[in-house]
Nucleic acid binder design. Structure first.
Lengths: 183, 183
DNA sequence: GCTTGCTATGCAACGAGTTGCATAGCAGGA
DNA sequence: TCCTGCTATGCAACTCGTTGCATAGCAAGC
Protein backbone atom coordinates (compact mmCIF):
# COMPACT_ATOMS: atom_id res chain seq x y z
CA UNK A 1 0.00 0.00 0.00
CA UNK A 2 1.38 3.36 -0.93
CA UNK A 3 -1.44 5.82 -1.47
CA UNK A 4 -0.30 7.58 1.71
CA UNK A 5 3.18 7.88 0.27
CA UNK A 6 2.02 9.09 -3.12
CA UNK A 7 0.04 11.79 -1.31
CA UNK A 8 3.05 12.73 0.84
CA UNK A 9 5.23 13.13 -2.26
CA UNK A 10 2.58 15.25 -3.95
CA UNK A 11 2.12 17.46 -0.86
CA UNK A 12 5.89 17.89 -0.51
CA UNK A 13 6.08 18.99 -4.13
CA UNK A 14 3.29 21.46 -3.34
CA UNK A 15 0.78 21.67 -0.44
CA UNK A 16 -2.89 21.57 -1.39
CA UNK A 17 -6.44 20.57 -0.53
CA UNK A 18 -8.03 17.14 -1.01
CA UNK A 19 -9.76 18.43 -4.08
CA UNK A 20 -6.53 19.75 -5.59
CA UNK A 21 -4.85 16.42 -4.85
CA UNK A 22 -7.66 14.59 -6.61
CA UNK A 23 -7.09 16.76 -9.69
CA UNK A 24 -3.34 16.09 -9.59
CA UNK A 25 -4.09 12.36 -9.46
CA UNK A 26 -6.17 12.79 -12.59
CA UNK A 27 -3.26 14.43 -14.36
CA UNK A 28 0.34 14.13 -13.26
CA UNK A 29 0.48 11.58 -10.42
CA UNK A 30 -2.27 9.50 -12.01
CA UNK A 31 0.22 8.42 -14.66
CA UNK A 32 1.60 5.95 -12.14
CA UNK A 33 -0.82 5.97 -9.22
CA UNK A 34 -4.57 6.30 -9.65
CA UNK A 35 -6.91 7.38 -6.85
CA UNK A 36 -10.40 8.83 -6.59
CA UNK A 37 -11.35 11.78 -4.42
CA UNK A 38 -13.05 9.49 -1.87
CA UNK A 39 -9.91 7.47 -1.34
CA UNK A 40 -7.89 10.66 -0.99
CA UNK A 41 -10.23 12.27 1.58
CA UNK A 42 -10.36 9.08 3.63
CA UNK A 43 -6.58 8.67 3.66
CA UNK A 44 -6.01 12.38 4.38
CA UNK A 45 -8.29 12.09 7.42
CA UNK A 46 -6.27 9.13 8.72
CA UNK A 47 -2.97 10.88 8.00
CA UNK A 48 -4.15 13.98 9.84
CA UNK A 49 -5.17 11.84 12.85
CA UNK A 50 -1.73 10.19 12.78
CA UNK A 51 0.01 13.58 12.65
CA UNK A 52 1.52 13.02 9.22
CA UNK A 53 -0.09 16.13 7.72
CA UNK A 54 -1.48 19.37 9.11
CA UNK A 55 -4.47 21.25 7.71
CA UNK A 56 -4.98 24.96 7.33
CA UNK A 57 -8.49 26.33 6.84
CA UNK A 58 -8.67 28.70 3.88
CA UNK A 59 -11.84 30.75 3.54
CA UNK A 60 -12.73 31.54 -0.04
CA UNK A 61 -15.28 33.94 -1.44
CA UNK A 62 -17.90 32.62 -3.79
CA UNK A 63 -16.98 28.99 -3.23
CA UNK A 64 -16.74 26.55 -0.32
CA UNK A 65 -13.90 26.85 2.17
CA UNK A 66 -11.03 24.47 1.61
CA UNK A 67 -8.52 22.80 3.88
CA UNK A 68 -4.96 23.00 2.59
CA UNK A 69 -2.70 20.18 3.77
CA UNK A 70 1.05 20.31 4.42
CA UNK A 71 3.41 17.49 5.40
CA UNK A 72 4.38 17.41 9.09
CA UNK A 73 7.78 16.14 10.31
CA UNK A 74 6.22 12.78 11.26
CA UNK A 75 4.89 12.40 7.72
CA UNK A 76 8.23 13.24 6.24
CA UNK A 77 10.07 10.65 8.31
CA UNK A 78 7.37 8.08 7.50
CA UNK A 79 8.02 8.79 3.82
CA UNK A 80 11.77 8.49 4.16
CA UNK A 81 11.38 5.18 6.00
CA UNK A 82 9.18 3.88 3.19
CA UNK A 83 11.55 5.17 0.49
CA UNK A 84 14.33 3.02 1.92
CA UNK A 85 12.21 -0.14 2.14
CA UNK A 86 12.36 -2.69 -0.71
CA UNK A 87 10.15 -2.07 -3.75
CA UNK A 88 7.23 -4.52 -3.82
CA UNK A 89 6.67 -6.48 -7.05
CA UNK A 90 3.93 -4.91 -9.14
CA UNK A 91 0.44 -6.47 -9.32
CA UNK A 92 -0.21 -6.46 -13.07
CA UNK A 93 -3.74 -6.42 -14.52
CA UNK A 94 -3.95 -6.20 -18.30
CA UNK A 95 -7.56 -6.79 -19.27
CA UNK A 96 -6.74 -6.52 -22.96
CA UNK A 97 -4.27 -9.41 -22.76
CA UNK A 98 -7.02 -11.62 -21.29
CA UNK A 99 -9.34 -10.62 -24.12
CA UNK A 100 -6.72 -11.37 -26.75
CA UNK A 101 -6.17 -14.89 -25.45
CA UNK A 102 -9.94 -15.22 -25.09
CA UNK A 103 -10.39 -14.33 -28.76
CA UNK A 104 -9.35 -17.92 -29.59
CA UNK A 105 -12.75 -19.00 -28.19
CA UNK A 106 -14.84 -16.51 -30.14
CA UNK A 107 -15.73 -16.55 -33.85
CA UNK A 108 -14.52 -14.35 -36.70
CA UNK A 109 -17.24 -11.77 -35.99
CA UNK A 110 -16.09 -11.53 -32.39
CA UNK A 111 -12.48 -11.12 -33.47
CA UNK A 112 -13.50 -8.38 -35.90
CA UNK A 113 -15.21 -6.59 -33.00
CA UNK A 114 -12.02 -6.97 -30.98
CA UNK A 115 -9.98 -5.44 -33.81
CA UNK A 116 -12.25 -2.38 -33.72
CA UNK A 117 -11.94 -2.22 -29.95
CA UNK A 118 -8.14 -2.47 -30.08
CA UNK A 119 -8.09 0.35 -32.61
CA UNK A 120 -10.17 2.52 -30.29
CA UNK A 121 -7.90 1.60 -27.38
CA UNK A 122 -4.85 2.40 -29.51
CA UNK A 123 -6.22 5.87 -30.20
CA UNK A 124 -6.52 6.62 -26.47
CA UNK A 125 -2.86 5.64 -25.99
CA UNK A 126 -1.85 7.83 -28.91
CA UNK A 127 -3.61 10.75 -27.22
CA UNK A 128 -1.87 9.96 -23.95
CA UNK A 129 1.53 9.92 -25.65
CA UNK A 130 0.80 13.24 -27.35
CA UNK A 131 -0.21 14.73 -23.98
CA UNK A 132 2.99 13.49 -22.35
CA UNK A 133 5.15 14.91 -25.15
CA UNK A 134 3.39 18.28 -24.94
CA UNK A 135 3.87 18.28 -21.18
CA UNK A 136 7.53 17.39 -21.56
CA UNK A 137 8.18 20.32 -23.91
CA UNK A 138 6.27 22.65 -21.59
CA UNK A 139 7.69 21.53 -18.21
CA UNK A 140 11.21 20.38 -19.10
CA UNK A 141 12.46 22.58 -21.93
CA UNK A 142 15.98 22.79 -20.50
CA UNK A 143 17.84 19.48 -20.87
CA UNK A 144 20.34 20.55 -18.17
CA UNK A 145 17.71 21.32 -15.55
CA UNK A 146 18.97 22.35 -12.17
CA UNK A 147 16.90 21.13 -9.22
CA UNK A 148 16.56 17.51 -8.15
CA UNK A 149 12.76 17.55 -8.07
CA UNK A 150 12.45 18.52 -11.73
CA UNK A 151 15.10 16.03 -12.87
CA UNK A 152 13.30 13.19 -11.07
CA UNK A 153 9.87 14.23 -12.31
CA UNK A 154 11.32 14.26 -15.81
CA UNK A 155 12.76 10.75 -15.62
CA UNK A 156 9.38 9.43 -14.42
CA UNK A 157 7.68 11.19 -17.32
CA UNK A 158 10.21 9.62 -19.72
CA UNK A 159 9.10 6.28 -18.26
CA UNK A 160 5.51 7.11 -19.14
CA UNK A 161 6.54 8.10 -22.65
CA UNK A 162 8.55 4.88 -23.13
CA UNK A 163 5.59 2.89 -21.84
CA UNK A 164 3.16 4.50 -24.27
CA UNK A 165 5.50 3.98 -27.22
CA UNK A 166 5.94 0.32 -26.27
CA UNK A 167 2.16 -0.15 -25.97
CA UNK A 168 1.53 1.44 -29.38
CA UNK A 169 4.12 -0.79 -31.06
CA UNK A 170 2.65 -3.86 -29.36
CA UNK A 171 -0.91 -2.92 -30.33
CA UNK A 172 0.23 -2.73 -33.96
CA UNK A 173 1.62 -6.25 -33.52
CA UNK A 174 -1.70 -7.36 -32.00
CA UNK A 175 -3.74 -5.82 -34.83
CA UNK A 176 -1.55 -7.45 -37.48
CA UNK A 177 -1.84 -10.81 -35.69
CA UNK A 178 -5.62 -10.61 -35.31
CA UNK A 179 -5.99 -9.70 -38.98
CA UNK A 180 -3.91 -12.61 -40.26
CA UNK A 181 -6.10 -15.03 -38.24
CA UNK A 182 -9.19 -14.49 -40.41
CA UNK A 183 -7.25 -13.01 -43.34
CA UNK B 1 -13.57 -6.91 -12.73
CA UNK B 2 -12.30 -9.72 -14.88
CA UNK B 3 -10.88 -12.46 -12.69
CA UNK B 4 -13.85 -14.62 -13.72
CA UNK B 5 -12.98 -14.05 -17.35
CA UNK B 6 -9.28 -14.76 -16.89
CA UNK B 7 -10.26 -18.06 -15.24
CA UNK B 8 -12.69 -18.89 -18.05
CA UNK B 9 -9.97 -18.31 -20.67
CA UNK B 10 -7.51 -20.47 -18.72
CA UNK B 11 -10.06 -23.29 -18.29
CA UNK B 12 -10.98 -23.16 -21.98
CA UNK B 13 -7.30 -23.49 -22.86
CA UNK B 14 -7.18 -26.50 -20.52
CA UNK B 15 -9.54 -27.68 -17.72
CA UNK B 16 -8.02 -27.95 -14.26
CA UNK B 17 -8.44 -27.73 -10.51
CA UNK B 18 -8.31 -24.60 -8.38
CA UNK B 19 -4.82 -25.50 -7.35
CA UNK B 20 -3.66 -25.95 -10.93
CA UNK B 21 -5.23 -22.60 -11.84
CA UNK B 22 -3.36 -20.96 -8.99
CA UNK B 23 -0.10 -22.34 -10.36
CA UNK B 24 -0.92 -21.10 -13.87
CA UNK B 25 -1.58 -17.66 -12.40
CA UNK B 26 1.88 -17.80 -10.87
CA UNK B 27 3.42 -18.57 -14.23
CA UNK B 28 1.70 -17.94 -17.54
CA UNK B 29 -1.50 -15.97 -16.83
CA UNK B 30 0.13 -14.10 -13.95
CA UNK B 31 2.14 -12.13 -16.50
CA UNK B 32 -0.94 -10.01 -17.08
CA UNK B 33 -3.41 -10.98 -14.35
CA UNK B 34 -2.32 -11.83 -10.81
CA UNK B 35 -4.48 -13.81 -8.38
CA UNK B 36 -3.91 -15.82 -5.23
CA UNK B 37 -5.37 -19.25 -4.57
CA UNK B 38 -7.94 -17.82 -2.15
CA UNK B 39 -9.33 -15.48 -4.77
CA UNK B 40 -9.46 -18.30 -7.29
CA UNK B 41 -11.29 -20.73 -4.98
CA UNK B 42 -13.80 -18.10 -3.98
CA UNK B 43 -14.55 -17.08 -7.56
CA UNK B 44 -14.70 -20.72 -8.74
CA UNK B 45 -17.34 -21.40 -6.08
CA UNK B 46 -19.42 -18.47 -7.29
CA UNK B 47 -18.99 -19.48 -10.92
CA UNK B 48 -20.04 -23.03 -10.13
CA UNK B 49 -23.15 -21.74 -8.33
CA UNK B 50 -23.94 -19.57 -11.37
CA UNK B 51 -23.54 -22.55 -13.74
CA UNK B 52 -20.52 -21.05 -15.54
CA UNK B 53 -18.29 -24.03 -14.77
CA UNK B 54 -18.85 -27.68 -13.83
CA UNK B 55 -16.67 -29.70 -11.48
CA UNK B 56 -15.58 -33.31 -11.73
CA UNK B 57 -14.28 -35.10 -8.63
CA UNK B 58 -10.98 -36.84 -9.30
CA UNK B 59 -9.79 -39.25 -6.63
CA UNK B 60 -6.02 -39.46 -6.42
CA UNK B 61 -3.84 -41.93 -4.59
CA UNK B 62 -1.34 -40.64 -2.09
CA UNK B 63 -2.64 -37.09 -2.25
CA UNK B 64 -5.91 -35.26 -1.63
CA UNK B 65 -8.77 -35.55 -4.11
CA UNK B 66 -9.12 -32.68 -6.51
CA UNK B 67 -12.01 -31.09 -8.34
CA UNK B 68 -11.31 -30.44 -12.00
CA UNK B 69 -13.31 -27.61 -13.51
CA UNK B 70 -14.54 -27.23 -17.09
CA UNK B 71 -16.35 -24.32 -18.72
CA UNK B 72 -20.12 -24.81 -19.17
CA UNK B 73 -22.08 -23.26 -22.08
CA UNK B 74 -23.33 -20.46 -19.79
CA UNK B 75 -19.72 -19.62 -18.89
CA UNK B 76 -18.69 -19.60 -22.50
CA UNK B 77 -21.44 -17.20 -23.51
CA UNK B 78 -20.63 -15.00 -20.51
CA UNK B 79 -17.05 -14.85 -21.74
CA UNK B 80 -18.07 -14.00 -25.31
CA UNK B 81 -20.32 -11.23 -24.02
CA UNK B 82 -17.45 -9.77 -22.02
CA UNK B 83 -15.00 -10.09 -24.92
CA UNK B 84 -17.22 -7.83 -27.01
CA UNK B 85 -17.61 -5.16 -24.32
CA UNK B 86 -15.28 -2.12 -24.34
CA UNK B 87 -11.87 -2.48 -22.71
CA UNK B 88 -11.71 -0.58 -19.41
CA UNK B 89 -8.80 1.85 -18.94
CA UNK B 90 -6.03 0.29 -16.86
CA UNK B 91 -5.53 1.29 -13.22
CA UNK B 92 -1.78 1.89 -13.08
CA UNK B 93 0.20 1.52 -9.83
CA UNK B 94 3.94 1.98 -10.15
CA UNK B 95 5.36 2.13 -6.66
CA UNK B 96 8.87 2.70 -7.99
CA UNK B 97 7.80 5.87 -9.80
CA UNK B 98 6.45 7.25 -6.51
CA UNK B 99 9.75 6.46 -4.82
CA UNK B 100 11.77 8.13 -7.56
CA UNK B 101 9.82 11.37 -7.24
CA UNK B 102 10.04 10.99 -3.47
CA UNK B 103 13.84 10.76 -3.69
CA UNK B 104 13.88 14.55 -4.12
CA UNK B 105 12.91 14.76 -0.42
CA UNK B 106 15.56 12.37 0.88
CA UNK B 107 19.31 12.99 1.28
CA UNK B 108 22.26 11.62 -0.71
CA UNK B 109 22.44 8.53 1.51
CA UNK B 110 18.77 7.80 0.84
CA UNK B 111 19.30 8.20 -2.90
CA UNK B 112 22.29 5.85 -2.74
CA UNK B 113 20.04 3.28 -1.06
CA UNK B 114 17.47 3.80 -3.82
CA UNK B 115 20.15 3.20 -6.47
CA UNK B 116 20.94 -0.15 -4.84
CA UNK B 117 17.26 -0.98 -4.67
CA UNK B 118 16.70 -0.08 -8.33
CA UNK B 119 19.62 -2.32 -9.26
CA UNK B 120 18.06 -5.21 -7.36
CA UNK B 121 14.71 -4.49 -8.98
CA UNK B 122 16.40 -4.35 -12.38
CA UNK B 123 17.90 -7.81 -11.79
CA UNK B 124 14.44 -9.30 -11.16
CA UNK B 125 13.20 -7.86 -14.45
CA UNK B 126 16.24 -9.23 -16.25
CA UNK B 127 15.38 -12.67 -14.88
CA UNK B 128 11.77 -12.26 -15.99
CA UNK B 129 12.86 -11.33 -19.51
CA UNK B 130 15.18 -14.34 -19.66
CA UNK B 131 12.32 -16.58 -18.52
CA UNK B 132 10.01 -15.17 -21.18
CA UNK B 133 12.61 -15.66 -23.92
CA UNK B 134 13.25 -19.25 -22.83
CA UNK B 135 9.50 -19.90 -22.79
CA UNK B 136 9.13 -18.37 -26.24
CA UNK B 137 11.80 -20.65 -27.73
CA UNK B 138 10.22 -23.66 -26.02
CA UNK B 139 6.53 -23.00 -26.75
CA UNK B 140 6.62 -21.13 -30.06
CA UNK B 141 9.55 -22.54 -32.07
CA UNK B 142 7.61 -22.43 -35.34
CA UNK B 143 7.16 -18.85 -36.59
CA UNK B 144 4.28 -19.99 -38.87
CA UNK B 145 2.28 -21.67 -36.09
CA UNK B 146 -1.07 -23.08 -37.10
CA UNK B 147 -3.80 -22.79 -34.45
CA UNK B 148 -5.38 -19.58 -33.28
CA UNK B 149 -4.83 -20.23 -29.59
CA UNK B 150 -1.06 -20.52 -29.96
CA UNK B 151 -0.80 -17.46 -32.21
CA UNK B 152 -2.73 -15.36 -29.69
CA UNK B 153 -0.78 -16.68 -26.70
CA UNK B 154 2.40 -15.80 -28.59
CA UNK B 155 1.40 -12.20 -29.28
CA UNK B 156 0.56 -11.72 -25.59
CA UNK B 157 3.95 -13.14 -24.65
CA UNK B 158 5.62 -10.76 -27.12
CA UNK B 159 3.85 -7.98 -25.24
CA UNK B 160 5.42 -9.21 -22.00
CA UNK B 161 8.84 -9.31 -23.66
CA UNK B 162 8.43 -5.79 -25.05
CA UNK B 163 7.33 -4.58 -21.62
CA UNK B 164 10.36 -6.09 -19.87
CA UNK B 165 12.77 -4.63 -22.43
CA UNK B 166 11.17 -1.21 -22.03
CA UNK B 167 11.40 -1.43 -18.24
CA UNK B 168 15.08 -2.42 -18.38
CA UNK B 169 15.93 0.50 -20.68
CA UNK B 170 14.01 2.90 -18.44
CA UNK B 171 15.69 1.59 -15.28
CA UNK B 172 19.07 2.30 -16.92
CA UNK B 173 17.84 5.84 -17.54
CA UNK B 174 16.70 6.06 -13.90
CA UNK B 175 20.06 4.80 -12.59
CA UNK B 176 22.02 7.24 -14.74
CA UNK B 177 19.75 10.09 -13.59
CA UNK B 178 20.03 9.20 -9.89
CA UNK B 179 23.82 8.95 -10.19
CA UNK B 180 24.25 12.36 -11.82
CA UNK B 181 22.24 13.96 -8.96
CA UNK B 182 24.96 13.33 -6.36
CA UNK B 183 27.76 12.67 -8.90
C1' DG C 1 -36.07 30.10 -15.35
C1' DC C 2 -33.68 25.74 -15.91
C1' DT C 3 -30.02 22.82 -16.55
C1' DT C 4 -25.34 21.84 -16.62
C1' DG C 5 -20.89 22.11 -14.66
C1' DC C 6 -17.32 23.53 -11.46
C1' DT C 7 -15.32 23.95 -6.69
C1' DA C 8 -15.15 21.48 -2.21
C1' DT C 9 -16.08 17.90 1.17
C1' DG C 10 -17.91 13.83 2.83
C1' DC C 11 -20.99 9.34 4.20
C1' DA C 12 -22.56 4.59 3.41
C1' DA C 13 -22.57 0.25 1.31
C1' DC C 14 -20.59 -3.02 -1.25
C1' DG C 15 -17.21 -5.71 -3.76
C1' DA C 16 -12.38 -7.00 -4.48
C1' DG C 17 -7.96 -8.19 -2.70
C1' DT C 18 -4.70 -9.52 1.16
C1' DT C 19 -3.05 -12.02 5.17
C1' DG C 20 -3.08 -15.44 8.45
C1' DC C 21 -4.40 -19.65 9.56
C1' DA C 22 -6.18 -24.65 9.29
C1' DT C 23 -6.42 -29.40 7.64
C1' DA C 24 -4.15 -33.60 5.86
C1' DG C 25 -1.29 -37.17 3.74
C1' DC C 26 2.95 -38.15 1.55
C1' DA C 27 8.02 -37.60 0.03
C1' DG C 28 12.68 -36.42 0.87
C1' DG C 29 16.58 -34.92 3.36
C1' DA C 30 19.33 -33.78 7.89
C1' DT D 1 12.96 -38.66 13.95
C1' DC D 2 11.92 -34.36 12.80
C1' DC D 3 11.42 -30.73 9.67
C1' DT D 4 10.54 -28.94 5.35
C1' DG D 5 7.92 -28.81 1.27
C1' DC D 6 4.39 -30.20 -2.03
C1' DT D 7 -0.47 -31.20 -3.36
C1' DA D 8 -5.20 -29.65 -2.45
C1' DT D 9 -8.98 -26.99 -0.41
C1' DG D 10 -10.93 -23.69 2.39
C1' DC D 11 -12.50 -20.09 6.44
C1' DA D 12 -12.22 -15.60 8.79
C1' DA D 13 -10.87 -11.05 9.38
C1' DC D 14 -9.34 -7.14 7.56
C1' DT D 15 -8.03 -3.48 4.36
C1' DC D 16 -8.49 -1.34 -0.06
C1' DG D 17 -11.06 0.32 -3.92
C1' DT D 18 -15.49 1.50 -6.25
C1' DT D 19 -20.09 3.39 -6.76
C1' DG D 20 -23.82 6.04 -5.60
C1' DC D 21 -25.37 9.66 -3.27
C1' DA D 22 -25.61 14.26 -0.59
C1' DT D 23 -24.71 19.17 0.33
C1' DA D 24 -23.97 23.93 -1.33
C1' DG D 25 -23.06 28.17 -3.76
C1' DC D 26 -21.85 30.26 -8.00
C1' DA D 27 -21.20 30.87 -13.20
C1' DA D 28 -22.50 30.17 -17.93
C1' DG D 29 -25.49 29.05 -21.53
C1' DC D 30 -30.16 28.01 -23.61
Amino acid sequence: MALEHAILVSLLERPGSGYELARRFERSIGRFWTATHQQIYRVLKRMEADGWVTAEEIGQEGRPDKRSFSVAPAGRSALVGWLRAPVQPEAVRHELAVKIRGAAFDDAAGRAALVAEVERYRATHEETLARYLTGERRDFPDPAASDAGAVLQHVVLRGGIAYERMVLAWLDDVLATLRTLDH
